[in-house]
Computed example of a mutant assay.
Amino acid sequence: MSGLLMDYNWTEIIKRKDPLREVFAGFDPYTVAKMEEKEIIEITSNKALSLADSRVMCIVDNAKCIMKASN
């Protein structure tokens, strides 16, 4: 969630915590790393989150890095 600080302040992030947890599989990096284009498009089209596609891709890429580091 701290990666969202570039776009939002902590108050806004906390307000979006539950929807973010839902779309990012409970913040499970293994599940997020496997997200495909269809899922990314669904997240970016969620008006309640207002996340740019580049931001979502960054989150997915970070999850992939976590997977590599844990192997």
Rank of each mutant, 00 (worst) to 15 (best):
S2I: 10
S2L: 07
S2D: 14
S2G: 11
G3I: 14
L5N: 04
L5R: 08
L5M: 00
M6P: 02
M6Y: 10
D7I: 10
D7V: 09
N9V: 03
N9I: 03
N9T: 02
W10N: 01
W10Y: 04
T11F: 03
E12A: 14
E12G: 05
I13P: 05
I13V: 09
I14H: 01
K15N: 03
R16N: 00
R16Q: 02
R16H: 01
K17H: 06
K17W: 01
K17E: 07
D18V: 14
P19F: 11
P19G: 12
L20I: 11
L20T: 07
L20P: 11
R21K: 15
E22C: 06
E22F: 14
E22K: 12
V23A: 13
V23T: 12
F24C: 13
F24H: 07
A25M: 08
A25C: 15
F27R: 00
D28Y: 14
P29D: 00
Y30K: 02
T31M: 06
T31L: 08
A33R: 06
A33Q: 01
M35N: 06
E36W: 12
E36C: 01
E36R: 12
E37N: 13
E37P: 15
E37R: 15
K38Q: 05
E39M: 03
E39A: 07
E39K: 11
I40E: 06
I40H: 03
I40V: 12
I41S: 03
I43N: 02
N46E: 10
N46F: 10
K47I: 10
A48K: 13
S50I: 02
D53T: 14
S54R: 03
S54V: 15
R55F: 02
R55Q: 01
R55K: 02
V56S: 10
C58G: 00
I59V: 01
I59M: 09
V60Y: 00
V60F: 04
D61P: 08
K64T: 13
C65G: 13
C65I: 13
C65K: 10
C65S: 10
I66H: 06
I66D: 10
K68L: 15
A69G: 09
S70T: 09
N71W: 10
N71G: 02
